[in-house]
Nucleic acid binder design. Structure first.
Length: 123
DNA sequence: TGTATGACCCTGA
DNA sequence: CTCAGGGCCATAC
């Protein structure tokens, strides 16, 4: 069976929707967004989608960081400073160019992720 | 049509 | 901590 693959347009939509869900003051990794968009293993696509995202969507793009807690842009670069400023304005603290994902990461656990993916308490 | 390039990630050394 | 290797794959040229 060939893996059913959504068109990139559909994937982008799912990715943007996932990004919109990240709460203020929290951050999510590229891979995390991919999972939320039901595109596991495709973190790279999230970066691509973000890079090509229209300003009109007003996405909270700054809340997407690397799984390591570092920003994807080179330290000191213009976009790095912009993203960091926007995060700090929301209360996200940096420790030597790094964010504590245990503390600021969202969703907070695999269980929380499941609920987001499959809905609350299927029971 | 082939190759290169990335706003990535994980594992293992 | 760094580094390499393998996976991922839409885009650009």
């Amino acid at each position: 069976m060939a893996k059913a693959r959504r068109s990139s347009v559909q994937s982008y939509a799912a990715i943007y929707a996932a990004i919109q869900r990240v709460p203020r003051g929290k951050v999510c990794s590229y891979g995390g967004v991919a999972q939320l968009a039901k595109l596991p293993g495709r973190a790279r696509l999230v970066g691509t989608a973000l890079r090509n995202s229209p300003r009109s969507l007003r996405l909270p793009w700054h809340r997407i960081v690397q799984a390591s807690g570092r920003l994807a842009f080179p330290i000191g670069s213009d976009p790095y400073r912009t993203q960091r400023r926007r995060l700090e304005r929301e209360g996200v603290r940096f420790k030597s160019h790094r964010i504590d994902m245990q503390y600021y990461g969202w969703p907070a656990s695999d269980v929380a992720l499941d609920e987001l993916l499959w809905g609350h308490r299927s029971r």
